[in-house]
Design a binder for these strands. Structure first.
Lengths: 220, 220
DNA sequence: AAATATTTTTAGACTACTCTAAAAATAGTA
DNA sequence: TACTATTTTTAGAGTAGTCTAAAAATATTT
């Protein structure tokens, strides 16, 4: 239906829209799809022709409902594949993204649905990002930043803000994986680093850089 | 490393080489990759440049060792994915091919190896075709045509010769799937159709068109 | 508001792959 | 062997996507 390239543009614009809320400018898109501004302009004309987004010269773009659906469907496929790669094949947290980038463009509705069922209809991918449903609905999650927890409070690791390999590898090396519980025992007022209890037993220390990039589900 | 298109050309030429044994001519390739002869000529020059095959004008082509390895690796991926689609996701026999055509081009050695392990290092795909090993070695199978069985002889369905959807759907509808046993009870000398026992209990009748396209492992 | 900096668009060209139509080579036949 | 048919190759052009360099529009600074 749509080419790999088109899907990548739409997905990138969708993410930028969520992040920035407004009309998306050419350079941001060029950055996102790893190309030059001139190429973006060309593609914007093409996607606009196809009614996937509205484009006005020098004013940026905005996805149409149709474009948004394509973007979400691509995101759904990406996150289902990431889940498969991590949960079934045992890929590490940081390795799944690049392969899922390729797999998300495989065309077959039946495949997506069967994969979803095979995985047990997961609601979140290995990074804690919500997996859109078949209808395109994305469930809002009530995850908050670990850095918001106060001394004595407790939460379960449920996602990350920073998706870089470097950060994910760091987390994996320190056993800070999805599902682990964290109880804050002390917050330094100097550098905002925290001391905490991992899974109620192991004492750990986390820099602010780390805690402000981890999402947790707060336990009362 | 190599583009989807290049891999498809190499895979097609490899299959033709096995089938025909000799130098492969332009039209046969054009047929196999669904394009025109002129396009094939262009591509042969390109693949020849890259030392993936040897090409002499008007004389046809032959894969080099390098080209053969790429073809076999692609075939390996194709058949592993077919196995995944059938065994894990529950796709029917005839539906797996088209999706595997796409999946075989995903680039990641780690993915192939992990998938192989996940599937339990299968030796044959859902059509009974052998899956090349990591080293590129393809185990010869001792399957023979069902049509070669004589009255009273018995075998286990292990593969197909004809891979068309129509034939595969026909087999599936008649429960003639991999692993089922067949005992020949009668062979008509008129139309070469056979009467047989499916799994030792159900009486069935099969046309010659069917029996000459089924591969079985003969039981003594 | 003018000058400067930045962003975006246009123009023209390149790569990978494709095609049609015509020319060249090979194969088959009388 | 000469004629015809078939196959293959060349030539020229198209599509999707990309790029650089220059022009045009917008934003920022003074």
């Amino acid at each position: 239906m749509y080419s790999t390239t088109e899907e990548n543009y739409l997905k990138t614009i969708y993410k930028l829209q969520i992040q920035l809320g407004t009309f998306i400018n050419t350079n941001a898109i060029a950055d996102g799809v790893n190309t030059k501004a001139a190429s973006v302009t060309d593609m914007m004309k093409k996607l606009s022709e196809k009614k996937l987004l509205s484009y006005e010269k020098y004013k940026g773009v905005k996805l149409t409902e149709k474009g948004k659906m394509v973007a979400i469907e691509t995101l759904r496929k990406h996150r289902l594949w990431e889940t498969f790669l991590h949960n079934q094949l045992g890929f590490t947290w940081d390795a799944v993204h690049d392969i899922a980038e390729q797999l998300e463009h495989i065309q077959s509705n039946e495949l997506v649905e069967k994969l979803d069922a095979f995985l047990g209809f997961p609601t979140h991918d290995p990074h804690g990002d919500p997996i859109p449903g078949r209808n395109g609905v994305i469930k809002e999650s009530d995850f908050i930043l670990l850095s918001l927890l106060k001394k004595g409070e407790k939460g379960v690791i449920s996602g990350v803000v920073n998706h870089s390999s470097l950060f994910l590898q760091h987390l994996e090396k320190n056993k800070l994986t999805l599902g682990k519980s964290i109880t804050i025992t002390e917050v330094s007022s100097f550098d905002l680093s925290v001391k905490a209890l991992l899974d109620g037993k192991e004492k750990i220390q986390l820099s602010n850089e780390v805690v402000k990039n981890i999402l947790i589900k707060k336990l009362i």
